Structure formats: structure tokens, C-alpha cells
Simulated assay, not measured.
Amino acid sequence: MKRNLIRHVAGTVMIALVAGALLVGCDAKPAGDAEMKFINVEKVLVESGLVQQEQAHLKAVNENLHKGMQLAENSYANFPAEKVEAARQADKNVIAQQWEVQQNAARIVVMKALKTASDTYRSEKKIAVIMPMQAAVSVAPELDVTADLTQKLKTAKVDFGKVPEIILKTAENPAGKTGSK
């Protein structure tokens, strides 16, 4: 699933970069001046540690969502028997939606870190465009900047924000909110 998500995001990035490359091509310099470089997006994300940071964050999210589901399960003892299954299904749907939102948000943060590093590298090296390897049929080795961007991102610490907490509504806490958490 994570691999499919990486491929999906890489495909989206590829389409945007191809469109940008087509626009940049109108302003091309004489032949021989390499203005385009390539990266293996998946390799950069894995080897730089960004995917590991994403996985660690998502593990914490998943643990909190599981705790939330357990809280909900415990609260069913107070429900009439005929309403337990409907409440359980509603809670499962909320947890599944929150999981999907958190996965997408984490991937966006990771891709933003890659884009920021790529933009900085591109500006420093005076490169017109950096394309994903998947957009090319063949690439000369000197046009591959995967190793450079991987090295640049190895020290990057990504901020995914707070891990969501599931709080049940109670008579004392009707909105289901926590104090300062």
C-alpha cells in the first residue's frame, strides 16, 4: 500500500514536472548546456530516511487510533444491545477516515521536503528542471542527481505535526475535547 502511494505521488510529481519541462523548453539554451537533471524519487525518499520518518509518525498515529477504538469499544458496555453494532461500525468508519487523512498528510509533508530540497539544489546548481527518472526512457549517468539530493536530505527532520488523539464524548466532556493536549 505504501509502495502504491509512493508510486501514485511520484506519478503526480512526474506529470507536473513534465508540464514544467515543456514550458521551460521554449526558453532553451543552445545544445550541450544541460538544464535538466533527473532523480529516482523512490530511492531518494527511502535512502534519505524520509520514508522511515513517515513510517515512524504513521506508527504513532496508528497506535493512537487503535487506543481510540479500544476506548470506544469499552464505552459500548453502556449502550443498548441493538445500538452496539451501529456504534461500532460508525467508530470504525471514523477511524478509517482519520487513518487515510493522516497517511495523505504525512506523504504531503514528505513530498514537500523533497520539493524544497530539490528547489534549493536546482537554484544552487542553476538547473532549469529536475525530473523523476520514471519520466525518461534513458538518462546519461551525469544527469542523475539522486545521490546529491539523497545526501542533502539525510539530515532533514520532517515535522508531521501532532499525533491525533481520539477522545470520547462524555457527560463531563460533551464536546470530546481535551484540555491542553
Rank of each mutant, 00 (worst) to 15 (best):
V94P: 00
A128E: 12
A106T: 10
A136K: 02
P132Y: 07
L149D: 02
N40H: 06
R107E: 13
H57N: 11
F38E: 00
L58H: 03
L65Y: 01
L149I: 08
V158F: 04
V61A: 10
E54T: 06
H57A: 02
Y121G: 01
A72S: 15
L58P: 07
V41A: 02
A147H: 07
L65C: 03
V46M: 04
N93E: 09
Q98E: 12
N93V: 06
Q55P: 13
I108P: 10
K112Y: 04
K92N: 10
G161D: 08
L50I: 04
L114M: 14
P141N: 10
V139L: 09
K154C: 05
Q103A: 15
K125A: 05
V145A: 06
D148V: 00
A105K: 14
P141Q: 08
T120D: 07
E47G: 05
A56Q: 15
K92D: 09
A105C: 06
G68L: 06
K152M: 13
V61N: 07
L71T: 04
K157V: 10
T146E: 05
Q151N: 10
D119M: 14
I95A: 13
E42Q: 05
D91C: 11
A87K: 12
K115M: 13
E124P: 02
K125E: 12
P132E: 02
L114D: 05
I39H: 00
K43Y: 02
V145Y: 01
G49V: 07
P141L: 00
D159I: 12
E42A: 09
Y121W: 09
E54D: 08
S75F: 06
V137Y: 03
V110Q: 03
G161Y: 00
V61L: 10
V51W: 09
V109I: 05
A72M: 09
D159A: 15
A72Y: 14
G68V: 08
H57D: 02
Y76L: 09
M36R: 01
L65T: 05
K67E: 15
V61P: 14
V41L: 00
A135S: 12
V137K: 04
A96N: 08
M111R: 03
V46L: 14
A106D: 03
E73T: 07
